[in-house]
Every structure is written in structure tokens, then in C-alpha cells.
Computed example of a mutant assay.
Amino acid sequence: MTKIYRLLTEDDTSAFCHKVSLALSRGWELHGSPSMAFDAETGRMRCAQAVTKDIEADYSPDMKLGQQ
């Protein structure tokens, strides 16, 4: 069993919540608390949430994590 990791990021809109909800519906689990930071270049708040998932495959840097 291999544990894989993703960091989901998005502007602070409902799109971020939908991105995290989609990952959870595909078997990913929350890892830690979400983070928010102000992006001075764009003038927007950004959100981030780490997620992990156990898979039955060997890890490869070529794998598309979002498709696992």
C-alpha cells in the first residue's frame, strides 16, 4: 500500500470547496487544517488543503495524482 499526497489550491471561492469535496468523494482524506493567504500580486485570498490517499500501486513521479 502506498500513501500519496496532494496540495489542493484555489482562490477563496466556492470552487475551492468543490475541489476539496470532489477529492473527498474520490477517497482522498484531509491531512491537517486548511490554510489561507493573501496574494498581493492578484489582490485575492488563496486557500490550500492537503489531502492523502492510500493506493494499491507503486508510486511514480509520472502518475497523475488527481486521477488516482
Rank of each mutant, 00 (worst) to 15 (best):
G32N: 05
R6L: 13
R46Q: 14
A23H: 08
K64F: 11
R6Y: 07
I4F: 13
D62Y: 12
M63A: 07
L65F: 13
P34G: 00
K19S: 06
M45S: 05
A40D: 14
C47N: 00
K53V: 14
S35D: 08
L8S: 06
D58G: 09
L8G: 02
D54F: 13
R44A: 09
S21R: 01
A40Q: 11
A37K: 04
G43D: 03
G43V: 01
Q68M: 15
K3S: 12
G43P: 15
R26C: 11
L24K: 01
L24G: 02
M45Q: 02
M45C: 04
K19W: 10
I4G: 05
R6N: 15
M63E: 09
A37W: 11
I4A: 07
T13F: 07
G43N: 06
T52L: 06
H31K: 00
E41Y: 14
P61E: 13
F38Q: 03
L24H: 07
Q49W: 10
V20M: 08
K3R: 15
I4M: 08
C17T: 08
A15V: 02
D12A: 09
Y59C: 10
R26T: 14
T13W: 04
G66A: 12
P61H: 11
W28L: 04
D11Y: 14
Q67W: 12
F38K: 00
L24W: 07
V51S: 02
W28E: 05
K3E: 13
M36D: 04
G32H: 02
A37H: 06
S35M: 14
L22P: 01
L8H: 07
T52F: 12
G32W: 08
Q68R: 08
A40K: 03
C17H: 13
Q67D: 15
T13H: 01
I55K: 00
V51N: 01
A50N: 03
M63P: 03
S60H: 09
G43L: 00
A57R: 04
V20G: 04
E29T: 05
I55Q: 00
T13A: 06
T13G: 01
A15W: 06
I4L: 07
L22G: 05
T52P: 07
E56G: 06
F16V: 00
Y5R: 02
M36L: 12
D62C: 07
I4T: 09
D11C: 04
V51L: 15
E56P: 05
S14Q: 11
S33G: 10
K64C: 13
D54S: 14
L65A: 15
M63W: 10
I4R: 01
C17F: 13
S33Q: 08
